[in-house]
Nucleic acid binder design. Structure first.
Lengths: 191, 191
DNA sequence: TCAAATCATTGACAAATGTCCTGTGAAGGC
DNA sequence: GCCTTCACAGGACATTTGTCAATGATTTGA
């Protein structure tokens, strides 16, 4: 009997009874999106934090020169949104869209805070997840500080081996902060 | 009548009675350090998260080539530690040291969790602070993705105007991920 | 006070990366 | 099935950044 992926993730941090998990789940809305569908437009309010049940999303920004920068990918069991716009209820400076058909559980800020308040366990869960996210971002920054593009690429490879099969190399390059030409040269030298 | 800086910071997020704040404060230890003193050595366990009352600290790593990379500065009212080592109770991969004589309030992980558990307000505070930190790191990453060294420098200038007067330019360069020579050339073109 | 260490700047050159371009398959829409 | 787009590799050249070395100014400490 397989458990719900969200429950599995929560129970890595705190334990829940069946009734408690049902109560948690009631705060989410299921939303599905098509490949290429834009889920959050730059300039709109970020109404939801998305837990990816199935599929692949990304958060990106196009700068004034028209260049696209990918801040984050979100595969199964990842949380994804414009964190600033969501938590501060301001207009988004980022775009969230789908690289594959995607099924999500969506949480409003209101429901997140309600959950946190009514179930301290859930606040503990959110705190732990956010702390882990913070640590991951620190590592990515250290990678920018101390590694060249080649090392960053191999670091990404080992961190998310499945990603390469699911997204074009140009997007990997964008995530790494280099042009696709540069990435192409790096992967060439390998052989 | 001036309030305690920690209380001011907490009360930006949740309100506390005098008794509650006293109870919070009892979980901290006051620690002072001399300029150049190393507070956390690479390889040691990160016993504390430091709230900087007065002074200036930094978190850095020296890579295998001997190059030093600065992950974070910590001025007054900042929290600073090796987040991963602290929260996972593992050996630190980073160094924390003081750029000035520094007075801190130090919190162990045990006390942090105790506070979070016994005072839900404090967990709310920690969650909000961590979320804000997460957002700040995302912005720094976007800066690496979309800005050249010059723009990153000016972004840092506007973000922390006081920092330039307190730390040598070589450290600013290290924080920005460029060599001091490069930074020197960038600031030269200004005039 | 003087010597040593630190800090910033600059030049010459090398290496890494960006930009612009072409060509070639493969994948997707009608 | 055909046509358009997309994905990727690669070349030629420009720009940015790193590396190494030298210099002078400032600060630090005995």
């Amino acid at each position: 009997m397989s458990q719900h992926p969200l429950r599995i993730q929560i129970e890595e941090i705190v334990t829940l009874s069946d009734a408690e998990f049902d109560r948690v789940l009631a705060h989410f809305q299921e939303k599905t999106f098509k490949k290429h569908q834009i889920v959050l437009h730059q300039g709109d309010y970020a109404s939801f934090d998305f837990f990816v049940v199935k599929g692949l999303m990304r958060v990106s920004r196009v700068d004034p020169d028209g260049k696209e920068h990918i801040l984050q990918f979100g595969m199964e069991n990842w949380w994804i949104t414009d964190a600033e716009a969501f938590h501060r209820q301001t207009k988004s400076t980022l775009t969230v869209d789908c690289l594959e058909d995607t099924k999500t559980l969506s949480l409003t800020l209101e429901n997140k805070e309600k959950l946190s308040k009514e179930m301290p366990k859930m606040q503990t869960f959110f705190l732990k997840k956010t702390t882990n996210g913070y640590i991951a971002l620190q590592k990515r920054i250290l990678c920018f500080l101390s590694s060249n593009a080649n090392d960053r690429y191999h670091n990404l490879l080992s961190l998310y081996p499945g990603l390469m099969q699911r997204v074009p190399k140009a997007m990997i390059a964008s995530y790494l902060g280099v042009t696709r030409e540069t990435l192409s040269r790096l992967t060439k030298v390998e052989s």
